[in-house]
């Protein structure tokens, strides 16, 4: 048990994913193929980019429930402007600005007014989507004009590797470098560990909070664009879906902690691997939706139980912040 206990949660999750993958490949033809691995990675790329944004916020002991809304609304603004005849760079710039503005509003409310991030971002979903709907997005479904091939090309493959997977890879690398090789990244861990000490030590706490939520929003925008590139449309209904919980699930199961200062890009990768292997296998076996939910819930519960057994409850868990 002691040796097992030294395992980090992400390693444990990756191990479970590996065992699952092996058992699927024994029971399913052509499961263990390069093609299927590619399909698995492709299906996880969008969720992965969202999760990279989320882990930055969660490390800083926050949470952003409005991330999907920000991503979809800002991507929808870009698509709407493209449909109105704007050039691609300008439309993307407008979407980017919208995402940054929404991220900054979240940060301002959380930091300046000291409203808990859970409530702030839960309510900002309604404000962001509502404002967008009454102003420039009256329709929830916005189709990408067919002559706009640039964005759709991002959803295709490059030498049999899906471009969304490469985008995810690049985002993962940049996020990792940000968290571990920059001062601001290290500050976010410190702030997540103990916000008060961080403030008393003279860390720029305002900048820390703003950078967390703006980066989360930016990665949300990238994920939103990836979604547009794969489906050639924006459906704002996604905002009402349970996707945000999948994002948080990926982060938390891989080793991110809502108590802050734990996890990193490796946790996102491990969480994605487990969820990806599970969903991919169940899709191939054509398992029905209800059974899928039971299996998904069961596996997640098992991982959490094993984690608790290996890493017993401590005072850190008692100070949940969000």
């Amino acid at each position: 048990m002691h040796i097992l206990g030294s395992f980090k949660q992400e390693s444990l999750v990756a191990l479970v994913a590996l065992i699952l993958a092996i058992s699927f490949s024994l029971s399913l033809d052509s499961y263990a193929s390069w093609g299927n691995a590619i399909a698995l990675m492709r299906s996880m790329a969008i969720l992965g980019v969202f999760a990279l944004g989320m882990i930055i916020v969660i490390i800083g002991r926050g949470i952003d429930l409005s991330q999907i809304a920000i991503g979809m609304v800002s991507a929808a603004i870009s698509v709407k402007l493209l449909a109105a005849g704007m050039t691609l760079p300008l439309a993307l710039l407008a979407g980017l600005a919208a995402a940054m503005a929404m991220g900054s509003i979240n940060a301002a409310l959380i930091h300046a007014l000291a409203i808990p991030p859970l409530f702030t971002t839960l309510t900002s979903v309604f404000v962001f989507v509502g404002l967008a709907r009454v102003s420039i997005l009256p329709s929830m479904i916005i189709n990408l004009p067919s002559q706009q091939t640039g964005l759709v090309a991002v959803g295709q493959n490059w030498h049999s590797v899906p471009i969304p997977v490469m985008v995810f890879g690049a985002c993962a690398l940049l996020t990792h470098l940000f968290l571990h090789a920059t001062t601001m990244g290290r500050f976010i861990y410190a702030y997540g560990d103990n916000a008060e000490t961080a403030r008393l030590s003279g860390m720029p706490v305002t900048a820390i909070v703003i950078s967390q939520y703006v980066l989360c929003a930016l990665l949300g925008f990238v994920a939103g664009l990836l979604m547009v590139s794969t489906t050639a449309m924006v459906d704002l209904k996604t905002v009402n879906s349970t996707m945000i919980f999948d994002v948080i699930l990926v982060v938390v199961i891989g080793g991110g902690s809502l108590a802050g200062a734990r996890g990193g890009v490796a946790s996102v990768l491990a969480g994605l691997l487990l969820i990806g292997v599970l969903l991919n296998g169940m899709t191939l076996m054509d398992v029905n939706a209800q059974l899928q939910n039971i299996i998904k819930g069961g596996v997640l519960l098992a991982v959490i139980m094993v984690d608790h057994w290996l890493h017993p409850y401590d005072e850190e868990d008692a100070r949940q912040s969000v």
Partner: peptide, 24 residues
Amino acid sequence: VVSTQAAKWDSSKANALTATTLQQ
């Protein structure tokens, strides 16, 4: 009938499901 997956009216889910099914 090789697949009867539910995409929950979501085009992005339909995309991912179909990509996986086409692979198989």
